[in-house]
Simulated assay, not measured.
Amino acid sequence: MHVTEPIDILLVEDNPGDVRLTQEAFKEGRIDNTLHITRDGAEAISFLRRENGHEDAPKPDLILLDLNLPRKSGADVLEVLKNDRNLRRIPTIVLTSSEAEEDIVSSYENYANAYLTKPIDPDEFIDALRTFETFWLSVVQLPPSEE
């Protein structure tokens, strides 16, 4: 297993039900983690840049990003991330309900590390997140923190 220390995960998600399911999946996970939640794209950018009330926010080890967000879309957040030297190394996984080919292509063109479509069934959603956790936190080696 590559991750031995607790990790910080930023979940950018406006759907309260998906937030709850994600919290449930990670709470019972094998990797010690802290799940930080922002509800829209603008707040996510403030969190990542430690602005507007997020001055004490940790730099996340991993980002789970919905595409369909209020105020600033997930695609816009991806673009900001990958054009910011301080943020572009953070692995970013798009976790969205969209199966649209243009969203998939656009996400990868903006350097998303993976694209996962949210299952509609809550149990399948939790299973998908647990599989995600096993792969991204146990198999893949994450980049070291720059701080």
Rank of each mutant, 00 (worst) to 15 (best):
Ile31Leu: 11
Ile37Ser: 07
Leu62Tyr: 02
Arg50Val: 04
Pro144Tyr: 08
Ala25Ile: 00
Asp123Ile: 10
Pro16Leu: 15
Asn86Ala: 15
Ser98Gln: 08
Gly53Val: 02
Asp103Phe: 07
Asn33Val: 03
Val77Ala: 12
Asp40Val: 00
Leu11Met: 02
Trp136Tyr: 11
Glu147Tyr: 09
Val19Thr: 06
Pro58Lys: 01
Tyr111Arg: 15
Phe26Tyr: 03
Tyr111Ile: 03
Thr131Lys: 15
Phe26Ala: 04
Phe26Asn: 06
Leu87Met: 09
Lys59Trp: 12
Leu65Asn: 05
Thr131Trp: 12
Ser73Arg: 04
Ala25Cys: 08
Ala100Ile: 09
Asn110Leu: 15
Asn52Lys: 02
Asn68Trp: 11
Phe135Ser: 07
Leu81Lys: 06
Glu43Val: 05
Ile90Glu: 13
Asn113Glu: 11
Arg20Trp: 12
Glu43Gln: 14
Pro122Val: 11
Ser73Asn: 05
Thr131Ala: 15
Asn33Phe: 04
Thr134Asp: 13
Glu146Trp: 09
Asp66Tyr: 08
Leu95His: 13
Thr38Pro: 05
Glu51Gln: 14
Asp40Ile: 03
Leu48Ser: 07
Ser97Leu: 07
Asp127Lys: 14
Leu137Asn: 03
Gln141Trp: 01
Ala112Trp: 02
Glu124Tyr: 07
Asp76Arg: 09
Leu137Ile: 06
Phe47Gly: 02
Asn52Glu: 12
Pro70Tyr: 03
Gly41Glu: 08
Leu137Ser: 05
